[in-house]
Design a protein around this nucleic acid. Structure first.
Lengths: 232, 232
DNA sequence: TAATAATATATGTACTACATAATTACTTTA
DNA sequence: TAAAGTAATTATGTAGTACATATATTATTA
């Protein structure tokens, strides 16, 4: 018999555990019943009875949802639907040590994309106060060769840029990507090279320049990184 | 006594469960021992003995890590460290129905930032074949008033753009943000307004224009969305 | 009536038992 | 002796019981 077609004819044996199934069912249930954050959920024992599985299994599934912040539990009161902390869950798996090299590279590029796209939000929401603070950061930078400080400068400056967008999620996203970013940059060949446009240049563009100036400036600033990228 | 200072003096009673603690300890353990994907992990009973908690608790913690794709379990063989699917976990909590309105707005802006930042990767990696496919998508668009089709066009076109960056993570990210994006756009006041630059215009820029042209074109295309944004 | 105590209830933890799958060791047979 | 088949072993998966603990509700008392 043709082995190649076998996998099409024979359905893959599901290795799903009961906890997996219950987790899924609960998600569907919450959505279907259109529970809103703060609503009380059924008790564990009610779920056990309804689903026909052991309390153990139900608790494993609930434990997962609790970790994701989708539910909260209070003794006696039972469980409540909650608002998940979307980035918090992301953070949990974002460890450069465990992540695939290929994904790391993708995330590195993702950060470049983000930084290049910041300009519009930035020019919409920048304030004189912000720019003053940013300038202070840029002026305080030490320009000796110690790598540790250089990384610190980078983080402070670019972090402030994200902050200036007034988008908390974006800011947190940046914080999360920091370790990843750091990891990849150490992989880059040769010495740390600085783009022609410095942090101070960027500050000045923010003060008097246009959005387009800023986009060009940011590109020039990140150019050393862009040059490490390769085509498909 | 001053109640205001009380919370500073009295440490907050931790409501962490054993499962929370064990989860954390296991993460630290894996990192400390610098396990690599594929490595065999201790058996459940060994963890039970080492941590001094019930098997139940250990299993709840393991269940969470398993959900995140950090570990895999095979009967008899035990557990293996795995490569987590970072975006998969993200997806799990990214339901517009349970996400905070404020976060939704943030994610909407995040997507705008991404699209504005695509240009550099796009011009680095675009191929004639890609552009041809993109053009086909743009040409196939129906321009009647049916909203359903318009959304479909948007998804197909912008999705292709993400794809052309050659960055799988970015592409998946876009797919994830789609429902969120759709949700927010329906919130936008008034009728669906199209930017002055059409999809076909963008295609032509990709063909013969410069990166800067494209950035300007994309901004013009997204302008209706940008105009809904407000300052801090 | 207000403060206090008792009760009920739902989650958290521990423990036991057995099912199931898969590896390993052993035995049988050609 | 090698291959095939069988049994033993082992680690995870599921079920169920028991009790601890915190808290909302109810009952009691001053």
């Amino acid at each position: 018999m043709d082995v190649g077609n076998l996998s099409k004819d024979l359905e893959r044996i599901s290795t799903e555990t009961m906890a997996d199934i219950v987790e899924l069912r609960l998600r569907e249930f919450f959505k279907k019943k259109s529970f809103k954050p703060g609503d009380a959920l059924p008790k564990e024992m009610e779920l056990v009875a309804a689903l026909g599985v052991s309390r153990n299994v139900v608790r494993e599934a609930l434990s997962r949802l609790r970790m994701l912040g989708m539910i909260e539990t209070r003794k006696k009161r039972g469980m409540l639907l909650a608002r998940p902390d979307i980035l918090g869950t992301f953070e949990r798996v974002l460890d450069p040590l465990i992540i695939d090299e290929h994904i790391l590279q993708d995330l590195f590029e993702l950060r470049l994309v983000l930084e290049m796209g910041l300009a519009d939000l930035l020019f919409l929401r920048k304030t004189d106060k912000d720019i003053a603070e940013l300038e202070k950061i840029a002026l305080n930078e030490s320009h000796d060769g110690v790598k540790k400080f250089r990384v610190k400068n980078e983080i402070a400056f670019h972090g402030k840029l994200y902050e200036m967008t007034g988008n908390d999620t974006l800011k947190r996203f940046q914080v999360m990507l920091l370790p990843v970013f750091g990891y990849v940059t150490t992989m880059e060949k040769g010495e740390y090279t600085v783009g022609k446009t410095t942090h101070l240049d960027l500050v000045n563009i923010l003060k008097t320049g246009t959005k387009e100036d800023f986009k060009a400036g940011m590109y020039a600033h990140l150019l050393p990184h862009f040059e490490t990228l390769n085509k498909k």
